[in-house]
C-alpha cells in the first residue's frame, strides 16, 4: 500500500477527555475508495477515534487531541484549520438515525443550502440524485414533503446517508450505522455501502464482526487492556487476513468471540 493511495493518515493520535486518556498513540492509514472497519469491544475507543476524523469531538468541552490526522496532505489538527470546510469533505452517519424534524426534501437540501445553493431547480436535482444514490428515491419520491422523522428506522438511516451524499463529501464516516435498525434494513445499508465504495472513502465503526467481515476491505482492532487504560490499536490489516489469520493472539480471541 503506497502513501499515495491513502486518503487519510492517522499519526500517533491520542485523545483526552479532561484528564482521562481515551485513546493512545494510534497510527493508521485510511485507503482511498475502500471501506475501513474499526472493531473492538465496547468502550475500546473506536467511536472516539472515528469522531476524531472530522473533528466532531471539538463540540465536547474539555477534549484535547495530540498527534495528527492528515487529509490529502494537510493536518486537520493544525492551528487555523477550517473545521466547517472539513466536515463538508468528511461526512458522518450516526448510530441512531437522526433526520432533522423537517421534510424529506429539506433534510437532503440542508447541506447544499448551507453551501449557498439557492436555486430550486439545482436543489431539486441534488435531492433526487442523492436520494437515488442512497437507494431511497423510489420509496419517497411521492411524498418528499412529508416529515423525515415519519419514515421507518432503516429509511431514516438511508435518508441520513442521502443527506451526507448531498454535500458531495470525499469521506463518509459511519458510527455503528446499523445498531438501531432491523436486519433487513441493515442488509440494504450494507449493499448501499458496497455501491458507494466506487466514489467514496468510508470508515465504519461496528461491534458486529460479521458486518465488518462482510463490508470492509481493511480492519483495525482496538482494545482497552486494563480498566482505566486508554484504547490502543492492536492490529490493522486487510480484512481477510485479520479474520482468517490474525497476527495478534488478542485479535484472534476477539474475533472468535472469546471475549468482549
Amino acid at each position: 500500500m503506497s502513501a499515495n493511495d491513502n486518503k487519510m493518515d492517522i499519526n500517533n493520535l491520542s485523545m483526552f477527555y479532561g484528564d482521562f486518556k481515551a485513546i493512545e498513540d494510534i497510527s493508521l492509514d485510511i485507503p482511498a475508495q475502500r471501506i475501513t472497519a474499526l472493531i473492538g469491544p465496547s468502550g475500546c475507543g473506536k467511536s472516539t477515534l472515528v469522531r476524531c476524523l472530522n473533528r466532531m469531538n471539538d463540540l465536547i468541552n474539555g477534549v484535547r487531541v495530540e498527534g495528527e490526522v492528515i487529509l490529502d496532505g494537510e493536518n486537520m489538527y493544525a492551528p487555523g484549520y477550517d473545521t466547517i470546510a472539513l466536515r463538508r469533505r468528511v461526512g458522518m452517519v450516526f448510530q441512531r438515525p437522526n433526520p432533522f424534524p423537517k421534510s424529506i426534501y429539506e433534510n437532503v437540501a440542508y447541506g447544499p443550502k448551507l453551501g449557498g445553493i439557492k436555486k430550486k431547480g439545482e436543489l431539486d436535482a441534488i435531492v433526487e440524485d442523492s436520494l437515488k444514490k442512497a437507494a431511497l428515491w423510489s420509496e419517497v419520491k411521492q411524498n418528499l414533503q412529508e416529515s423525515g422523522q415519519r419514515l421507518s428506522g432503516g429509511q431514516q438511516q438511508r435518508l441520513c446517508i442521502a443527506r451526507v451524499i448531498a454535500v458531495e463529501p470525499e469521506v463518509i464516516l459511519f458510527d455503528e450505522p446499523c445498531s438501531a435498525i432491523d436486519p433487513v434494513a441493515t442488509q440494504l445499508i450494507e449493499d448501499l455501502m458496497a455501491e458507494l465504495k466506487r466514489n467514496y472513502t468510508m470508515v465504519i465503526v461496528t461491534h458486529n464482526m460479521q458486518q465488518a467481515a462482510r463490508v470492509s476491505d481493511y480492519t483495525a482492532f482496538l482494545l482497552v487492556q486494563e480498566q482505566g487504560e486508554p484504547g490502543r490499536l492492536i492490529e490493522y490489516g486487510e480484512t481477510n487476513t485479520i479474520f482468517t489469520n490474525p497476527e495478534d493472539e488478542r485479535t484472534e480471541r476477539y474475533i472468535t468471540g472469546r471475549f468482549g
Binding site: N54, M56, L59, I84, A85, L86, R87, R88, G91, M92, F94, R96, N98, P99, F100, P101, Y110, G111, L114, G115, C160, R163, V164, V167
Partner: peptide
Amino acid sequence: PVELKEASAAMGATRWQ
C-alpha cells in the same frame, strides 16, 4: 436531542446555523 445538533455540525453548519 443532541443527535440533531451533532448531525447539523457534521453537515458543516456553523454554531449559529
